[in-house]
Simulated scan of single mutants.
Amino acid sequence: MAVFTEVTLEQAQALINRLDLGQVLELRGIGAGIENTNYFLTTERGEFVLTLFERLSFEQLPFYLQFMKHLAARGLAVPDPQADARGEILFEIQGKPAALVNKLRGGHQLAPDLFHCEQVGAALARMHLAGQDFPLHQPNLRGLAWWTDTVPVLLPHLAPEQAALLREELAYQQQLAASQSFAELPRGPIHADLFRDNVMFELLPPQPEGVQPLQGRERLSGFFDFYFAGVDTWLFDLAVCLNDWCIDLASGRLDEARAQAFVTAYESVRPLSGTEHRLLPALLRAAALRFWISRLWDVHLPRQASLLKPHDPSHFERVLRERIARAWHALPST
């Protein structure tokens, strides 16, 4: 979400004219993240997010955009890609694929409590079920095949003990992926990147007289940034969330109370199978590995961008080591 490609007001207005959304009132670059160029765009008709895709191709993008359309049509709180008079939702600006979606209400909750984790857990399960009949298919492009291709490129940049850990964990995940148990895991379209900064909450409105107030409480107002989505195991998506929403940031350890609340809420919508419960520790390792690899890539092989702020890869190295140390620890069944 760094600004790799500068967009002028004239270029933005041309797109807004095509979408019949009035006059552009403000165009402001978003500095967080590292994958795409994003702008907040305000018009006479509302607030939107304009995205130019820096890595994804015109051929890949229909999956992501149509998946959001699919979820929005089923009542999930996700950005809805704006369509022109012909129903087109994928456009071009400066030779780059581009899309415009409505801006979600609220803000991030970077210090989640049980209440936040319960809401995200239940909404994640609803998203998985809603995607079961989505007709398009695209693999998780940051899955095992990408790990296998990327690790050899990273190894020369790492300290010996880091390189050893990366090789060993990749081998473990390759073996796991070839197992019969892994093949039994239910799968479908997943978000694959549902971190705290990809979820929005808004304050609950004042309660009617006589109803107990929930001061300080917030409700989930939406998921966004679906541009790592792909077909993979639902358990991997759950593991990605647990590794971000339910951990002690300093140590990388799971916060048991938050993790249990998250899984319990998820299972209130879609119960996990016995195989899923058994493989959850292994998928927690897989989720940590995926983000350690991508953060190493962004640090050691960066691209130039205005406002670029790569994430610290040592965080997910720490999380991975913690997950390996507790390899046989799993949350109790609910």
Results as ranks from 00 to 15, higher is better:
P160W: 08
L124R: 03
F182I: 04
L41F: 06
R278M: 09
T334C: 07
Q173G: 10
M1C: 15
L165R: 15
Q207W: 03
P271I: 00
G106F: 04
L21M: 05
L110R: 00
V199C: 03
L283I: 02
I34D: 10
T51K: 03
L166V: 01
P206Y: 06
P186R: 08
F226A: 05
Q175G: 14
V199S: 03
Q207F: 05
T150Y: 00
V153L: 15
Y227P: 10
Q215A: 14
V319K: 00
K69V: 09
M127K: 10
R321Y: 04
L154F: 07
L235Y: 12
G75V: 13
Q94T: 13
L235A: 08
L279H: 02
A123G: 08
L176Y: 09
V231S: 11
Q212F: 08
D298W: 02
S57C: 01
E276N: 05
Q132A: 13
H300W: 13
Q207T: 09
L296H: 02
F262R: 06
K309L: 12
E92F: 10
I89R: 12
S221Q: 08
P205G: 01
V151R: 04
L19Q: 07
H311I: 03
Q260L: 12
F134D: 02
D84N: 05
E26L: 12
H300L: 06
N198M: 01
R167M: 01
T8H: 03
E161H: 14
F48R: 08
T233M: 12
H311L: 12
G75E: 06
R105H: 13
G31S: 13
P79I: 08
N17A: 14
N102E: 15
D248G: 02
R86E: 12
L144V: 12
N140R: 03
R217D: 07
N17G: 14
G31Q: 14
D149K: 02
V263R: 03
H137I: 08
F226T: 06
R196L: 00
L65S: 10
L9P: 14
E10K: 15
P79G: 03
R290A: 07
G216D: 09
R303Y: 08
L283E: 04
I34V: 15
P156I: 05
G188Q: 01
H329D: 10
P189M: 01
L280I: 03
F262T: 02
H157R: 10
T5K: 01
V49P: 04
R326L: 15
R285E: 10
A171H: 02
A145W: 09
E202F: 11
D237R: 13
N102M: 10
N38H: 11
M127T: 07
T275I: 09
Q66S: 09
V269Y: 00
Q109R: 04
R86M: 10
F291A: 13
D133W: 14
